[in-house]
Structures are given as structure tokens and as C-alpha cells.
Nucleic acid binder design. Sequence first.
DNA 1: ATGCTCAATATGTCTATACATAATAATCCT
DNA 2: AGGATTATTATGTATAGACATATTGAGCAT
Lengths: 237, 237
Amino acid sequence: MTEPQFKTWQSIQDEVLRRIHAREWPPGADIPNEADLAREFGCARATVNRALRALAESGLIERRRKAGTRVALHPVSRATVDIPVIRQEVVALGKTYDYRRLSHAQAMPPTHVAQRLCPAAPSTALHVTALHLASGAPFVFEDRWINLDTAPAAGTQDFLATNANEWLLAHVPYTHGEIRLSAEAASENEARILLTDPGAPLFVMERLTWDHARPVTLARLCYAPGHRIVTQLGTAP
Amino acid sequence: MTEPQFKTWQSIQDEVLRRIHAREWPPGADIPNEADLAREFGCARATVNRALRALAESGLIERRRKAGTRVALHPVSRATVDIPVIRQEVVALGKTYDYRRLSHAQAMPPTHVAQRLCPAAPSTALHVTALHLASGAPFVFEDRWINLDTAPAAGTQDFLATNANEWLLAHVPYTHGEIRLSAEAASENEARILLTDPGAPLFVMERLTWDHARPVTLARLCYAPGHRIVTQLGTAP
DNA sequence: ATGCTCAATATGTCTATACATAATAATCCT
DNA sequence: AGGATTATTATGTATAGACATATTGAGCAT
């Protein structure tokens, strides 16, 4: 008669997952409210809340006040991607990191950059290009614009020794940002720098970071051919 | 004299973020323990715990029992990527979704597939290729292998009307998975199907999903040129 | 010194209770 | 009927107290 008791929020999460997978609670269905579940599982409501909140963060269920909790109709897979500093990325591959600044100038950004980096009042910005190397081989070509209104201190740096990525992280932290991933053909210039052929497929990551309401920097990172990003889906095995 | 009181876990998170950004707590530094912070902020320890746990999940701080909490030395940016079902992805673009199955056969997978899909005992698997269209234009070319030991029910499906992605989600849910993102040159076959040129840079997403310890399916999704993924960094603005 | 045991400590979690908040349902007033 | 107001309800969050658990470090034994 002893109902299996669920004591930890993990075990409750597992049981809820089981019921969803077993179609006891099919996609789109409402699931019982926290108070009822707590009674059924023989635990406090806060424990149920913890379990359901974690599931909501993973995108499997949707919760709204008063409306209750339901299994997501279109279960989006939510993957978390860890994006380390490039130096760490290289070191993690067991290679030695090296950095070479290519150019450094203050200039008016092209429109597609200006739109995103200084949408309010167009002004000059700092343009830095650099190459990150892994054991001597080109790894990432970086083309970066820095908003000097937001980060005036960057104007005093030449970024010859320390790369802009790490300097900015240490001196102009951001509050949030946006990342765009795409595949693009290498331009003549990119191909020359990355020692590959024009037209080669490059993995491109564009990062725009903000400090509260003000754009900080827009970086376009072109990875050398063969690069890939690996990420995990769902919870731990 | 009234110390500013921090009542909500959000406000505590903001204050901790402020101190980190202001270098009061520089990278690598230990931050006070929960009990002390709770006393300082005039709130319960559980509230501090909630705030710090959220920051730890975002990768900005690291926490270990007994050792305490410290600001991450190499702050990895943790981005969450929402990966919807392809139909939803197309609909969200304001286009009409269409699906066309291209091939369907039971066969021995090539070694690089077998290694990941049936690492224990090599056996035949279900091979399905299909094209997803957005308003009539090729959107994604899908090349999928399904492990029939894990999902025997898939053997009875021809996947002519319903695509494998949605059928599997509805009938063989997964517990976790792995996603690989890369840029690759279009092969002759891929180019023909996606109506582009061989060698064109394609955004490729490989998904391997598992049901507990058993691999379910390995899908290789080649997006038509121009596709990109957008994701957010950090918390809400 | 080296290895083991045990106590100290910071985070992890659970409980019970209370109040806050958002969103819906019901009701009342034209 | 229609629109504004109020009540209800489920989630969201805060609190104090308690115990669990991992980890470190000190002290002891070999």
C-alpha cells in the first residue's frame, strides 16, 4: 500500500518526465496543480515547484499563473551552448594559443555594422582585426568593431599584446548579448588569412554585446574550416 | 542609515552582478558565504541561494560545497538555443511548410553512422531522407538513420505523410541528446536537392538523441544557404 | 612523511507557512 | 448585451528552521 514516496525534487522531476513520456500527460494536456501533486507525492509544494520550474526552463512544460501547467505542444529542444574565451577553446583542444593583431583603426563603420552598434547616433568606432592561432595554424579570424561611446577606455588600447575579447571582458563587462551562427563562403581576404581557398565554407559566429541599453562591441568570428560546435540536449544521462 | 534592503532574489542577483562588474569581487575571488550575505542583505539564506544558483547556472560564478562560491576565472558565456520542430521554424518565418520524403530503406549504416547509432552491435537501421520546404523553396535536407532496436515501431512507418522528426517526438521521446553545428560544402547530391551549387556553404546540424542508454536516431540536417541561428546571451535586458 | 579518521563548514535541499501577483471567471452596473 | 469591477485561483516568491552531503583540513596513527 505504501505509495512510492518522492522526496527529492529530482525524483519528482523524473516521475513527471516519466508520465509525459508515457503519454499519461500527452502534449498540450494540463497537469495537476502544485498543491495536488504535493499531496500525491507526499512532499511540500515548494519541492514540486522546484521540479516543475526546472522542467519549464528546459522547455518541456509551460507554466502560467492561474492558468496552470501544461505539457508543451511543440516541445522545443533547448540546448545550452558554452562559449569559452577563444584562448580556452584552443587550450582545451590541447594546442598552444597564439594571437596576432592584424589591423587597428578608428573609422566610420559600414552601415550594416552601424545599424547594430550605434543605432542612435552614427559615429566613428574602433575597428580591430586579428587572427587567433592554435599551435601555429589559423584558428579564428576576428573582425571587431567597438563602440567608443560605451567603452571609451578601449580607445587607449592598441590590442597588440592582449586580444580585444579578453580585454573587453576584463574592463567592459556586458549585461547581455546576441549571437548569430551561420555558414558563409570565405572571401578572398578571409581565405588568405585563414590559409584556405576563397569560397571555402566557414563557420561564422557574430556576437553583439550590450551593457544595459548601450551596445559595446560587434565581433564577427570566422572559424577555420572544420570547426564545429558541440552541445548537449536535455538533462544529464 | 537604512541600508538598502534587498528583498527579492532578483534584486540580490542584480547587486551581486553589480559587485562583480564593479570589480569589488574580481574574477577568481571568493565571495562571502550565503549566511553572511543573507545577514548583510537582510533576507533569508534561501533567497540568497536562489540568486546565486541562478548565476551559477549562467556560468558567471562557480559553487562547490564547503569550498564556497567564487567568481569564475574564465567566464564562459552560456547561450541557450531554442531548437523548434522544423515545421514551427518555417511557420515562424511566415512561410508555408511542406514536406517531401525522398527515400526510405532498411540498410547497414556506414561506419561513421554505426559508430554513434549502434556502437554495441552493428545492425541494420532505417534510413530516411527527406526535404523540408518553406513556401515551396528547399529549406532543409534531412538525412536520418533510426535505430530499430530502440524504436522498432518506426519500422512500420513509411514517413511519406508525416516527417520522421515529428513522428519520433510523438512516439519515441528521448531523454537526452547531442547537437553538432558545423559549416560544410554542399555535395553534388545536396546541391541538387537544395537547388544550389556544389561547394556552397551549408549550415549543418547533426542531432543524435538517446533514450536513456540507447541511441534512437542520428539526423543530419543541411540548411539551405543563408540560414542562421540566433540566440541570446545573459539574462533579460 | 604518508595514509586514515573525524570534525568543521558551505552549499544543497526539504518543510510549513505566508503573502504577492497575474490571469481568469464571476458579478454587477449601466 | 457590454464593459468595468471584484473574486478566485495557480503559480511565484519569501522565511525560518532543520537536516543532508560533499569537501576540506586538522589531527592521529602507521
